[in-house]
Nucleic acid binder design. Structure first.
Lengths: 224, 224
DNA sequence: CATAGTTTCATACAAATGTTTGAATTGCAA
DNA sequence: TTGCAATTCAAACATTTGTATGAAACTATG
């Protein structure tokens, strides 16, 4: 057996267990039992428990970031180098939301793991998240190009609010479902994305999406 | 010495240590050392570590909830039973933000504790937060009275977004500061509150605050 | 003062956890 | 096959953790 089989089993089992039961009460012994490998294998292949968690989180969030940047580039290409603010925000929040929301039964292990990572906040993941800022700067720059007259502070606040709504929706989706008694449909991922984008655009521009010409089309559709 | 002195020292020390270093790496032994009491005192006075944490969190959040409801009542009284949507949202997010934001040097221990509680997510606190929904229903009801034509789903989404922006601003204030290189002033608590209220009102009504008569006064002031 | 109830204390307990070790096994190349 | 490196394994380690115990000290009441 090549060395990769053990490694992969551990990653698999760890992601699944963390997704199901959270970081707090999953031990290395749980993981190696599920992966059917020896206890020492984790330290042999990853160095430590924290490095295992970090590797899981890094690979997943690199994927998300790649997706985000792809959508951003596509939007900018489509707009001849300057993307609409709504497209930029969609590229920012879309991949994360599509990854983490949707019907729970068909929610992937990876998605459930990332939700956990966003709810519980364990040290190795916190350390990685701090490096996310460079990635966000690219979106800030795109927004700046798209809204040349927007004040700096407003621009950052808009970016911050967009991420806030997206993350809190992922993190607290159960509360919203309970509070609204099911009226808010979190399985309609596209709808949720458009809602967040619409509100963010309003926050940034002070007016509804598309209000330049046809007066608040998108928002009216979404919010009335 | 009456029995309360030990109890109070423990609560004090625990809140301070948790605030400073987080729940993860503060042990009972750290707490009793800081409080200068015996190790067994915690179990004697609180039953268990989790109950100690719960008591800390409950008393702080009851205070916040009381403040929220007071502001809500005041706003409704001022409006003759029906408060403006902006006043309702201010009552919802104001107390929390005023409690947790502001210059860090003069940030109270209680504030720093509540920030921790919102960042890290330990089981005893999670359990309590789940009961918060009843409290939020009162705000949903007030919003319904204030916006009788608003769709149910939009109303809940608006409430959710308001809380999302507030919580994420508290939880991630460092990231926003770094990202904006200090341009976003998180010490201007009143300004932050107005920003969040303004965006939430737009999310709920599809238009800027006060746009009924004098066209986007509040928002223009805040965002231009 | 005496006694009953409360609180404090030193200490022990029991269990769990991540990590290390050194020997055994395996895979592969010479 | 032989030898060498990579991998696996069982077992032990070394801490750390919250909690329990039973005796001692204290407090207040009669």
């Amino acid at each position: 057996m090549p060395s990769d089989r053990t490694r992969a089993s551990i990653l698999d089992a760890a992601e699944r267990l963390y997704a199901d039961r959270g970081f707090a009460d999953v031990t290395l012994r749980d993981i190696v039992a599920a992966a059917d490998v020896n206890l020492a294998a984790v330290n042999y292949h990853f160095g430590s428990k924290d490095e295992l968690i970090a590797e899981l989180f890094v690979s997943r969030s690199l994927a998300t970031n790649r997706e985000r940047l792809n959508e951003l580039k596509a939007a900018e290409a489509a707009g001849g180098g300057r993307a609409g603010i709504d497209a930029i925000l969609r590229a920012l929040v879309g991949p994360t939301l599509r990854g983490c929301l949707g019907p729970d039964n068909e929610r992937s292990t990876a998605a459930r793991f990332m939700i956990r990572a966003s709810i519980e906040s364990v040290p190795p993941i916190r350390r990685i998240k701090n490096r996310e800022i460079d990635h966000l700067r690219k979106f800030a720059a795109a927004m700046r190009r798209s809204l040349p007259n927007c004040r700096d502070a407003d621009l950052y606040w808009g970016l911050h609010f967009a991420l806030a709504m997206a993350h809190q929706t992922i993190r607290d989706n159960e509360r919203l479902t309970k509070l609204s008694e099911g009226i808010c449909d979190l399985n309609d991922v596209a709808g949720v994305i458009e809602r967040i984008v619409a509100v963010s655009v309003m926050a940034l521009t002070g007016r509804a999406v598309g209000s330049g010409k046809s007066e608040t089309v998108a928002v009216r559709t979404q919010y009335r």
